[in-house]
């Protein structure tokens, strides 16, 4: 069995979003695409996300944000990642993201944006492309 080049991903829901059905289904899609998926649950503080990503030695953090706060959350998390030695980890953001915000997110350093309605196939291949 292949043991090298596994991609470890943390799927996290920051803030007060009410449900995580979508995030859980993304987790399953990623598993089926060969990822090792850590799911940390609802209502994660940015500190929890940083420490989880650290301990789990993930390659990518996938945020799922429905609350509309994707800009300030992403900006703050990227700053914290850099401060905590996680600057080499990729960040992706999915959820309710208006198209006009995508360039701003990319400029901040978000590697991929998956707005609501993105197919699972696009998400998994998009994540894989980050490591080509």
């Amino acid at each position: 069995m292949e043991t090298k080049n596994k991609i470890r991903v943390l799927i996290a829901k920051p803030g007060l979003d009410g449900h995580d059905k979508g995030a859980k289904i993304v987790c399953l899609a990623l598993r089926d695409a060969g990822f090792e998926v850590i799911y940390s649950g609802l209502h994660q503080s940015l500190d929890q996300i940083i420490r989880t990503a650290t301990q789990e030695a993930v390659d990518v953090i996938g945020l799922s944000i429905m609350s509309g706060a994707h800009l300030p959350i992403s900006e703050k998390l990227i700053a914290m990642m850099n401060k905590n030695g996680l600057g080499d980890i990729k960040l992706t953001v999915g959820g309710v993201i208006p198209n006009r915000d995508i360039p701003t997110l990319k400029e901040m350093g978000v590697a991929q944006v998956f707005p609501g309605g993105t197919s699972f196939d696009k998400i998994t291949t998009g994540m894989k492309l980050l490591f080509k």
């Binding site: 089926d32 998926v37 789990e56």
Partner: peptide
């Protein structure tokens, strides 16, 4: 080859 690591 994938896995859901849900214990955490």
């Amino acid at each position: 080859g994938g896995a859901i690591l849900g214990d955490r």
